[in-house]
């Protein structure tokens, strides 16, 4: 990991700490209050705030996890250089696509 990746990984980690706490709080709230899927969608559809919240969260996760996976591949596999970097970029894009698909599904009106 070089200094640029290090800073990106630390920044995204710092960003994810409050987002993760809110995310877990929301899960507890939804399950304790017994909210149905329809109740949740009623709150999220058309909400710019939830779109922003989970949009930022998904972006941070995609960047953070890819940098971490790059280190794992370096230390646990013979993959090096461009092959490794393409593999982690593909992984990051996959995470971003899956995450944004889920965000779009709950926030689009």
């Amino acid at each position: 990991m070089n200094v640029r990746l290090y800073i990106w990984q630390r920044l995204t980690a710092a960003l994810m700490v409050p987002l993760l706490l809110v995310h877990i709080a929301v899960i507890f709230y939804a399950s304790r209050k017994g909210l149905s899927a329809a109740d949740i969608l009623a709150r999220t559809r058309g909400s710019v705030s939830w779109a922003l919240f989970y949009g930022v969260f998904v972006s941070a996760v995609a960047v953070h996890a890819s940098i971490g996976l790059r280190t794992v591949l370096t230390e646990w596999t013979p993959l090096r250089g461009r092959t490794r970097d393409f593999a982690v970029i593909a992984f990051g894009l996959l995470l971003a696509v899956l995450g944004f698909r889920a965000v779009v599904a709950v926030v689009l009106p």
């Binding site: 990991m1 070089n2 200094v3 290090y6 280190t71």
Partner: peptide, 9 residues
Amino acid sequence: VAADSGCHA
């Protein structure tokens, strides 16, 4: 030391 495999590893 800031390059790949430097201090940040």
